[in-house]
Write a protein that binds this DNA or RNA. Structure first.
Ligand SMILES: NC(=O)c1ccc[n+]([C@@H]2O[C@H](COP(=O)([O-])OP(=O)(O)OC[C@H]3O[C@@H](n4cnc5c(N)ncnc54)[C@H](O)[C@@H]3O)[C@@H](O)[C@H]2O)c1
Ligand SMILES: NC(=O)c1ccc[n+]([C@@H]2O[C@H](COP(=O)([O-])OP(=O)(O)OC[C@H]3O[C@@H](n4cnc5c(N)ncnc54)[C@H](O)[C@@H]3O)[C@@H](O)[C@H]2O)c1
Lengths: 251, 251
DNA sequence: AAGCGTTTGTGAAGGCACGCACAAAGTCGT
DNA sequence: ACGACTTTGTGCGTGCCTTCACAAACGCTT
């Protein structure tokens, strides 16, 4: 479902159900003595952040345990889906009781890779870049903005929420000196591909793209796209359908 | 795929090939005498905006016709998927040639409901609201921002790209006097549900929510959510997986 | 210790979407 | 006018995701 956003897909080859195809004479179903490798479906991954947020809210409300029913309600999904999602992470619930809020939060955060703070650079400090740079919701969720970049001389040098906007040429050094880095692209559509190429060349392997263009990257790079105009158009589609139904054009 | 975001589904008939199999001896399982209703799958709907954008780019490049292969390339999808998607809208291609750019663009725009300009109000003119209000990409795609609202007295009265920010109390009047309206929610998470309730009460049936909260709405209202922190977390998940593989923890 | 109510974890079934592969349909060249 | 070539539209198989339904597991009460 979700789609074509992430490029490198396949998790590890490991089948979920080991007992499937290879039936040579290996007596037991499989001899995996240890933790039983299970890949997490992409659809599940896309929901984990929501569970995490719901758990944070519940923890703040003082709850120590939640049932799958209550957590699902808070996250806006069905309880069965929630349980199956969590089952891919392991069994952290207690039957008859539910899940311990703090513990489950920790496990999901671990699985998402939020143990250490990820480095984020924002490229293109225009309208949108300014808003994102000043957003507190990133730091509070395990991301720290370590660089703001732009080509416009009138923007470079400006200080946005404690960070000085730097020229695009400092980009490579910043990406290389730090470890893994996530790049947020808020440049005009026309230059998005070029800037992205440069990011990738510098070693970036995760890109969040706000420019309304398809950008092409090597297989080992993940790109997710946020397209506000598309979202509005999808809403318009459904709104139109509702309008037609009301008029009686269709059942 | 996409998910639980949009509430209502089912589409309208829009038959492709009228000469199909309607035999009036409707003794069969269903008696649909006429056009044979075909719904557009939600996954397809979510891709239509991208096709539309690709077509705009191709038109601007001066092309009059495109093959499914070329259009798919421009839109970043597979050609088979593209053809199947377009087939839900009807048969607008010419075998051996491809699709006429302008005509196909028009058909998709029609189907998305972009014939007339949709009214959009933005509620919460903070960091993000300012950026969205000043964004030209909406007007150019069939949406016109007709209202900016906030509660903060220091923000109300400010003029953002030609529109004066108005107090929240003017909201009902604006929504009611105009026709169907799409609301963009860029208020703090804590008040999102309350503001949304007010929007729905005023008659809004389409909401694009940027606040990191699950908001509950009646069945007839569509909500789509844009969650930047979640996008980053999903990228982090894949980045972590890649890192582990590189270290050799997993095959 | 045993029973009872609650809740998890998961097998199984159904639905949806994707991609392949090809016949139908049209164009272009001769 | 006809054949060769190109490209659409779609039937079909496959795999993923969702949903249902329930046995196993656990706490609590007696
Ligand atoms: N503003 C919005 O609400 C909004 C909404 C949806 C999508 N977008 C998209 O986000 C992107 C940015 O939007 P915006 O409104 O901030 O535009 P903007 O013009 O205000 O900002 C773009 C910034 O990128 C910088 N830039 C240009 N070329 C660059 C380069 N090669 N390298 C680095 N920086 C460069 C510019 O100097 C400018 O500061 C656009 O692609 C836009 O379509 C914006
Ligand atoms: N800024 C970002 O980059 C960013 C990124 C992701 C998500 N978000 C989310 O978007 C929302 C807005 O973010 P922001 O950075 O613009 O915050 P902000 O605080 O700058 O803006 C919020 C605005 O909403 C107004 N407001 C508060 N209560 C209101 C009410 N009841 N009715 C109408 N207006 C009201 C405030 O006066 C303020 O102007 C938040 O929920 C935030 O979590 C923002």
């Amino acid at each position: 479902m979700d789609d074509d956003v992430v490029r490198s897909a396949r998790l590890r080859p490991g089948r979920n159900r080991p007992g499937a195809g290879d039936d040579l004479a290996d007596l037991g179903p499989c001899e995996s003595a240890v933790p039983m490798p299970v890949e997490v479906p992409e659809a599940t991954v896309s929901r984990l952040p929501q569970y995490l947020r719901a758990l944070s809210a519940l923890a703040e409300a003082g709850l120590r345990t939640v049932s799958s029913e209550a957590l699902a309600e808070a996250a806006g999904v069905g309880s069965a889906k929630l349980r199956k999602d969590l089952s891919y992470l392991g069994s952290y619930g207690t039957r008859g009781v539910g899940y311990e809020v703090g513990e489950l939060h920790q496990h999901i955060a671990d699985r998402l890779g939020l143990t250490s703070s990820w480095r984020v650079v924002i490229v293109g400090i225009g309208n949108l870049g300014h808003a994102l740079a000043g957003y507190g919701g990133f730091a509070s969720r395990g991301f720290s903005v370590v660089g703001l970049f732009d080509v416009d001389p009138t923007v470079v040098g400006e200080v946005v929420s404690g960070l000085r906007v730097r020229p695009l040429d400092d980009l490579e050094a910043t990406v290389r000196e730090g470890g893994a880095t996530i790049a947020v692209l808020t440049v005009p559509a026309g230059v998005a591909q070029g800037v992205c190429d440069r990011l990738v060349a510098a070693g970036v392997t995760s890109v969040l793209n706000f420019a309304p263009t398809v950008i092409r990257v090597p297989d080992h790079v993940d790109v997710r796209k946020v397209d506000l105009a598309s979202e509005l158009q999808i809403l318009a589609f459904h709104a139109q359908r509702k309008a037609h139904v009301r008029v009686g054009e269709v059942v």
